[in-house]
Design a protein around this nucleic acid. Structure first.
Lengths: 356, 356
DNA sequence: CGGCCGCGTGTAATCGATTGCAAAGAGGCT
DNA sequence: AGCCTCTTTGCAATCGATTACACGCGGCCG
């Protein structure tokens, strides 16, 4: 059993120098003579000294820790990003505190709790449910603490932002269906108030509009990004009279729930329906059929977000105007989408059709 | 722009009391008269005071933070557990620092870095790759910091441990195959040095042995818990002469990779082969075919581990002997396993067969 | 009436590291 | 020698909260 952790005082005593010198030897070695530096290193070795972060934090008003707030760690989409964030943070010697926000319950109070208590030097927010005003107040209260928005955009927030091109990507995913000959295309929506879900819907609508295709609201089925909601949507889907021949699902998880539900009703993909997902989760290439999906550069997103945040923490004025990084997603074509089997339907597009 | 965060001094000045009284009013209210308490509350409200955790930490040698070290956050198995941990911790007003260990690179140094610097009050270790000695040294160096082992058992470590019944569960999963008439059963292994993987293999072997069935090593295919390794194993599987009619996969991710690989070679589940997985991840009920698998009580595991750790932090001597909680997993039968189609093979079991 | 108890409060030390300021010492220049 | 500069080091204050100890006061008991 160890008595107690050695402090800088112990090192100073061993090396026969003052604590000031020890501190300098460790953090600004070039300001200390070589001989002293060696004595200090030796004393550190002998005593087994390690920094007490609380002491440093108190003095420097710095925690060497970032706070990552996200809607749901369980979602493998977020956990990959969290992984990338952790790597980047670790490489720069920052700790990562995670805060799960699930239902938005007491979100602000919980964020305040961490930010105002000096436990974190910055916030990496992966949740788009807070409004600009709240966020600015929060930052100001905590002494203008840096905030980076990632993943779920909060427009005009005035903070650095790293996102992927959800609207554009959704448009391209939908166009892939159009290019495969589909003219009746539905959408499995994400949660109603989620920014990403709305962007993807916007992209979907834009593609249809661009190609003069109809977008009846009954073909836009409510979902909420999880498997069960996709499964439930399938039941509603099969009960419709006229059905789409293809569906763009807001993410992979709901896509497989949807496909699984359809199968129970004898609707088989890609024979009877084409489906494109979003995210390219681990199971996507191995599903039956392998899922066509938009792959987001998740690692890059996490890494760049963490990088931006830590840069801002260490050099608050480095970037005077809010940065806005938009990463491009990539369509991965697999087997859940196929050229339409039936003869082209008679519906006459109003505004013209893209050349096939 | 805020000047600076208000401190306890500011509150004291406003309430016309000493800082000692403010501190007491906030943390041991019953020791302060009601009138004073009211004045302090009011002053807190006016100034917008929030605790500076660094100050408290320094004085109390406490961080109100636990460190969770895990092999891979991306794995949805771990992320669910992390979620449960975070919930429990949040409910007791503790923060959660995460540390991703991936390849075991510098594991010990990184753990030390956090534990010895007083940034965390305890360690929740979800990785079984450290040995008992290293762990004890670590704990001792950090002033006998509490450690709880979860998920990946480290036997005889002397620390509280919360795990699931991997050996027993693997045995039951295998017996499910045996009870379905299978006599030639293979195993898709986990990583070679992983405790969980070894336990599952042990359970697998025990079931075969108990029923007098052979366990040829060539039917035990190396995998490493991820989808790709299952996919790769499928290629080796189909190239074998005599093949098992059923396979117990060490986890769901490798199971679907395996199934996906088999399908490419025309081997269809459950027609040609039965497969049982482990974990019951989100996609399991929606895979094709829906996956038979062992469901681990992941939420309970995470919650109990966090509970035990925080209890120990707050009351170090509450549990004199190391606690060992073993949670039971549950077989979920779906459609990836079926009674064997072919007539029972002629192989004569050596030590007797369970009654069907 | 004197002493004791207990409540509520204040004083000041303390936790461990960093850092502004000053001083000591070395070396160079006139 | 005297003065200046530059490097290296130490002294002591500081960050914010907690807490051991002491003090004043009112009430109670003998």
């Amino acid at each position: 059993m160890t008595k107690k952790t050695p402090t800088i005082q112990d090192v100073a005593r061993h090396a026969n120098v003052s604590t000031a010198t020890v501190s300098r030897a460790l953090s600004v070695p070039e300001k200390v003579s070589e001989a002293t530096r060696a004595r200090v290193s030796e004393a550190v070795r002998v005593t087994g000294y390690t920094l007490n972060q609380a002491g440093r934090s108190l003095r420097q008003r710095t925690a060497r820790t970032i706070l990552v707030a996200l809607p749901d760690i369980r979602n493998s989409f977020f956990s990959t990003i969290l992984d990338a964030i952790e790597r980047e943070a670790a490489s720069r010697d920052y700790g990562v505190l995670v805060l799960n926000l699930y239902f938005g319950h007491e979100t602000v109070r919980r964020l305040e709790n961490f930010l105002l208590s000096n436990r974190a030097d910055g916030l990496l927010l992966l949740d788009g449910s807070l409004d600009t005003h709240t966020l600015r107040t929060l930052s100001a209260q905590a002494g203008d603490i840096p905030i980076v928005i990632a993943c779920e955009d909060i427009r005009q927030s005035g903070f650095h932002t790293v996102v992927t091109d959800n609207i554009d990507a959704a448009e391209r995913a939908t166009e892939h269906l159009i290019n495969s000959g589909h003219r009746q295309i539905g959408h499995l929506l994400g949660p109603e108030h989620n920014v990403i879900a709305r962007d993807r819907q916007a992209g979907f609508l834009r593609a249809l509009d661009k190609h003069g295709l109809p977008a009846p609201t009954e073909w836009q089925l409510r979902g909420n990004f999880d498997t069960e909601s996709g499964f439930a949507a399938a039941a509603r889907f099969v009960s419709m009279g006229a059905r789409p021949t293809a569906v763009f699902a807001a993410n992979d998880e709901s896509a497989i729930g949807f496909l699984s539900g359809l199968r129970q009703h004898g609707v088989i993909c890609p024979r009877d329906i084409s489906v494109v997902g979003f995210d390219d989760l681990g199971f996507a290439p191995h599903y039956v059929p392998p899922l066509t999906t938009m792959r987001q550069p998740r690692e890059a997103l996490g890494r760049m977000a963490a990088e931006t945040l830590i840069d801002t923490i260490e050099e608050p004025d480095a970037l005077p105007t809010p940065l806005r990084i938009v990463l491009r997603s990539e369509l991965v074509v697999r087997e859940s989408t196929a050229r339409i089997a039936q003869p082209e339907p008679v519906s006459v597009p109003v505004r013209g059709i893209a050349t096939s």
